[in-house]
Design a binder for these strands. Sequence first.
RNA 1: GUGGGCGUAGCUCAGUCGGUAGAGCACCGGAUUGUGGCUCCGGAGGUCGCGGGUUCAAUCCCCGUCGCUCACCCCA
Length: 421
Amino acid sequence: MRGMHDLLPGPIARWQHFESTARAVLGCYGFEEIRTPLLERTELFVRSIGGATDIVEKEMYSFPDRDGDSLTLRPEQTASCVRAGIENGFIHLGVHRLWYMGPMFRHERPQKGRFRQFHQLGGEIFGPPGPEADAEIILVTARLWRRLGLDGLRLELNSLGTPDSRRAYRSRLAEYLLDRRADLDEDSRRRAETNPLRVLDSKNPDLQGVIEAAPKLLDALDPESRDHFDTLRAMLEEAGVPSTVNPRLVRGLDYYTKTVFEWTTDRLGAQNAVCGGGRYDGLVEEIGGAPTPGVGFSAGIERLVALLAESGAGAEPAPPAAWVAAVGPAAARVAPAVAEELRDAGMSAVLDAGEGGFRAKLRRANRSGAGFAVIVGDTEAAAGEVSIKPLRADRPQRTVPRAALKDTLAAWLPPGGPQER
RNA sequence: GUGGGCGUAGCUCAGUCGGUAGAGCACCGGAUUGUGGCUCCGGAGGUCGCGGGUUCAAUCCCCGUCGCUCACCCCA
């Protein structure tokens, strides 16, 4: 399937590293995990993301189910979190910080860093209206990058104001743009009417003059939003997280109010945003809950893992401590039990299940990266013994009674680790 | 949704001015009847993405299609 990929055993090591790091970091900020269905009613996304956005207009996987309801594979998960919070009442029960991780679906043309099924890590804070929550959302992501060892990420901030001031600005901007219709390209002419804020984000060099001279969103902010924004910037500065203000940052989802932000990199080509988010004070009410402010982030896992791969961080899967190679009918009968004894003792062991003689089995043992080969031939089996051959160290092979296997191996293994390298 | 590049062995890629294919790595076996890594020898593995067209003959040329890739667009 186009834009959908298998995640194979080798590369998955970096994903697991990312996932465990994310769990740990989110946990230490008091976030709790939530898992929601991959499918929601289409209406949920139309109401939350906005009918005039690209996501809703042309990117959703929507289809009628057997009852005739229109369902959609989630293109993002904030709306699902809000819906779940309303339906289960926990937004009012003191659970205010949620995180999620999982697949999202958007029918876009695939390219570097952009897929039709992709994965996001996200966090949401419901309830607090002040900039402290915005700061927590941004600080938790900043710490995650630090913990992952990612550098070179830039934080861009903007404020869209309250719905009222945003609406007022929006019509002023539309007016300005329509006055200059002749200077706009086709896309921008259409957006000037449907979603004028998006015009500010255009990369078309011919439009930069018009955009420069356009009324500034930040100049149009209401005093409350202005104060919220300034306080947030001061908090981030005090916490040692540098940011730059990008007045053109508008984001593609309609539910944002006041703060919006993006973490970007210059190492991933055209798809340079690795994380984005913002405040959405009207969303809970829009979806049918009691008016409740909220703020959140979502991060693209494929893109972050690509950055991890570039910096060469954490990759190798751990090889087993021992490889159990048995040759001959009597040996084959006891080999599974020998492997189980090692696992009982807390050591990892792989029982060779392949064809061939000693030669083939030892070759597989070596290739597996195992520290030791535990060899059982019919001679050993008859005597109730096993042979232990170190594969990574220059030590002689030893033959010991089966009962002494795990102690001999444990004595050879380094005290700290599960196996020798 | 628009445009460019690319699909040949498990992987990375050659190649055929149209006569049905090759290397390196990996894999399997042997040299070493019960012992890996190094070396040497041998072997296996391909509907040349798929479908159609032109041709005596297509992996090669043409059309379509699917997939990958990069950019636009958009975003994570």
